[in-house]
């Protein structure tokens, strides 16, 4: 009876520790990415600001959201992994240079690789390549409830950019928004 009781509480402890461990790992992984990931700034494709801040989160579109992928052996479908290579240009902007289903073998010092998943893939071959809409996990940004209008006014016709943190394996996280070069809504770590 005693050992049964000990086993029961050992089991409870294992389950609680395991599940909290998983949740804690999710948090740590994210915080680690935000704090130590490489920072890049991506321009947000302008849309009507009114629709941009409609809810309590904004949907952000980037130039890199639509990529052309050379047709290879792998068939693309929804959810396929895509690795997009970005190159830093002289004026400090990041531009897409290549995208494909395999992780590039070598990455230059002025390059980052973003890992994304195909959302839509066109089946029509265009010059031997596929056009795909890719999600990198940086497309929606939750803003505190009720502040959408404020942000809408703030942005107005100005240029909106997103501050992104990228880790070595290509995972990306939205760190904040940049309006005309000034950081707004920087993501707190905790």
């Amino acid at each position: 009876m005693r050992s049964e009781r000990r086993n029961l509480w050992l089991g409870v402890a294992v389950v609680v520790a395991g599940q909290i461990g998983v949740l804690g790992w999710m948090v740590w992984d994210r915080v680690h990415l935000l704090s130590s990931g490489r920072e890049i700034v991506l321009e947000v494709v302008p849309v009507d600001p009114r629709s941009l801040f409609r809810g309590d989160y904004v949907i952000l579109n980037y130039d890199i959201s639509r990529v052309e992928i050379p047709r290879g052996k792998k068939r693309l479908h929804r959810g396929s992994l895509i690795f997009s290579t970005l190159q830093k240009t002289k004026d400090g902007k990041w531009k897409l240079t290549a995208a494909g289903p395999e992780r590039p073998e070598s990455v230059g010092p002025d390059q980052v690789v973003l890992k994304g998943r195909v959302r839509f893939a066109s089946r029509v071959a265009r010059r031997g390549s596929n056009v795909a809409t890719v999600n990198y996990g940086i497309e929606s940004f939750f803003i505190p409830e009720g502040t959408g209008r404020e942000l809408e006014k703030l942005v107005g016709q100005k240029k909106l950019a997103a501050l992104i943190a990228v880790d070595e394996s290509g995972n990306a996280a939205l760190k904040g928004l940049i309006v005309d070069g000034a950081r707004v809504y920087e993501e707190p770590l905790f």
Partner: peptide, 19 residues
């Protein structure tokens, strides 16, 4: 536990892959 996964994903803007 499931709710925790969802809440943490929302808290940290994890726009990941739901499956």
């Amino acid at each position: 536990f499931g709710a925790g996964i969802m809440l943490i994903a929302q808290m940290f803007h994890m726009d990941g892959y739901p499956p």
